[in-house]
Simulated assay, not measured.
Amino acid sequence: MKSSTTINPHAAHPTSLTSLAKNLALHRELILQMTRREVLGRYKGSAMGLTWSFFNPIFMLVVYTFVFSEIFKSRWGGAAEGGGKTQFAVLLFVGMIVHGLFAEILSRAPSLIVNNINYVKKVIFPIEIMPIIAVGATLFHTLISTAVLLVAFIIFNGYLHWTVIFFPLVLLPLVILSTGLAWVLASLGVFLRDVSQFIGILITILMFLSPVFYPISAVPENFRPYIMANPLTFIIEQARAALIFGQIPDMPGLAIYTVVAIGVAGAGYAWFQKTRKGFADVL
């Protein structure tokens, strides 16, 4: 691809989900190549390289276990629900994995276009795949963290529930939702540079208003509807059911969540495609 090749940045672009599917199929090799580069680029120049992707979740799991089990003496809803120190650690880590996936995608989204101005102005490049690449790189680190979690669970308990096979299905609607929001935020980040600051605050709020550090049963009844309205709550609860408690997730609930997520993704993609005509004028 020659850098001298140019396009009209103000040209209209298709906004349908059909065009999105065609774009993803057409540029699948480019998406995989750039996702790989994104993952490797994060550790470029470090002595341990990609190994850090394994050590980071291990360190965090150890720290969370020590702080909440030894200092705060926290237990997860009593012995009947799995109140041991190690059980608390893995339950907590499941919540952190789900929140981390959502948080990383949203925090990176506002700068995706701003940090790649050349793709907007000077070369033929499908900039609509930039959020997809960010999601792919985030999923890689989520996979590593999940592997660390499963190994820890086996070490602590000596077995693994067969229901772990449902975990990808549990994450799928959140990934779709996050991608749709990433398209919206990537566009807004071009026109409103304060979006990144707002998202940073929102991510912190969502962490404490999600059942990451506590079970949903610990929330007073009058506040529970607000916690359940958090898009992370349902996914975290279903992830724990599949990974830790050996329960089959709520399939009807996941189906409804997926339909809503597809709607958000479609709207987010349409918004991005409609607003991208103004990117070149701002950047």
Rank of each mutant, 00 (worst) to 15 (best):
residue 4 S to M: 06
residue 6 T to V: 07
residue 10 H to S: 13
residue 11 A to Q: 12
residue 12 A to G: 05
residue 14 P to T: 06
residue 15 T to A: 11
residue 15 T to D: 02
residue 15 T to Y: 02
residue 18 T to I: 14
residue 18 T to M: 13
residue 20 L to E: 06
residue 20 L to Y: 08
residue 23 N to F: 01
residue 27 H to G: 04
residue 29 E to L: 08
residue 32 L to R: 15
residue 38 E to C: 01
residue 40 L to E: 13
residue 41 G to C: 07
residue 42 R to Y: 06
residue 44 K to F: 03
residue 46 S to N: 08
residue 48 M to T: 13
residue 49 G to E: 00
residue 50 L to M: 11
residue 53 S to N: 03
residue 53 S to I: 05
residue 56 N to D: 14
residue 57 P to W: 01
residue 61 L to S: 07
residue 61 L to I: 12
residue 61 L to R: 10
residue 62 V to T: 12
residue 66 F to L: 14
residue 67 V to C: 05
residue 68 F to S: 10
residue 69 S to P: 12
residue 70 E to N: 14
residue 71 I to N: 11
residue 74 S to W: 12
residue 74 S to M: 14
residue 75 R to I: 04
residue 77 G to Q: 04
residue 82 G to W: 00
residue 82 G to H: 08
residue 82 G to M: 00
residue 84 G to K: 05
residue 84 G to Y: 00
residue 84 G to M: 02
residue 89 A to L: 12
residue 92 L to R: 09
residue 94 V to K: 06
residue 95 G to K: 06
residue 95 G to D: 02
residue 96 M to K: 14
residue 96 M to L: 15
residue 99 H to D: 06
residue 100 G to Q: 10
residue 101 L to F: 13
residue 101 L to Q: 13
residue 104 E to D: 15
residue 109 A to K: 01
residue 110 P to D: 10
residue 113 I to W: 00
residue 113 I to L: 04
residue 114 V to G: 00
residue 119 Y to H: 09
residue 121 K to N: 11
residue 125 F to A: 11
residue 127 I to W: 07
residue 128 E to P: 08
residue 129 I to F: 03
residue 130 M to D: 00
residue 130 M to Y: 04
residue 131 P to E: 01
residue 136 G to S: 02
residue 140 F to H: 14
residue 144 I to N: 01
residue 146 T to W: 06
residue 149 L to E: 08
residue 150 L to V: 07
residue 152 A to G: 08
residue 157 N to L: 08
residue 161 H to V: 05
residue 162 W to F: 12
residue 162 W to Q: 13
residue 164 V to M: 11
residue 167 F to C: 06
residue 169 L to D: 04
residue 170 V to N: 10
residue 170 V to W: 07
residue 171 L to N: 03
residue 179 T to D: 04
residue 181 L to E: 01
residue 181 L to P: 00
residue 182 A to I: 05
residue 184 V to P: 03
residue 186 A to E: 09
residue 187 S to M: 00
residue 187 S to L: 01
residue 190 V to D: 02
residue 190 V to L: 01
residue 195 V to C: 02
residue 196 S to Q: 15
residue 200 G to F: 07
residue 207 M to H: 11
residue 209 L to G: 08
residue 210 S to P: 13
residue 211 P to M: 07
residue 215 P to W: 07
residue 219 V to N: 08
residue 230 N to L: 11
residue 231 P to K: 03
residue 231 P to T: 03
residue 233 T to V: 09
residue 234 F to I: 14
residue 235 I to S: 10
residue 238 Q to C: 07
residue 238 Q to M: 09
residue 239 A to F: 00
residue 239 A to E: 12
residue 243 L to V: 12
residue 245 F to W: 05
residue 248 I to V: 14
residue 248 I to L: 02
residue 248 I to P: 07
residue 249 P to A: 11
residue 251 M to S: 02
residue 252 P to F: 01
residue 253 G to Q: 13
residue 254 L to M: 10
residue 255 A to S: 15
residue 257 Y to W: 14
residue 265 A to W: 08
residue 265 A to M: 15
residue 266 G to L: 13
residue 267 A to E: 05
residue 270 A to K: 09
residue 274 K to T: 07
residue 276 R to N: 11
residue 278 G to K: 14
residue 279 F to S: 09
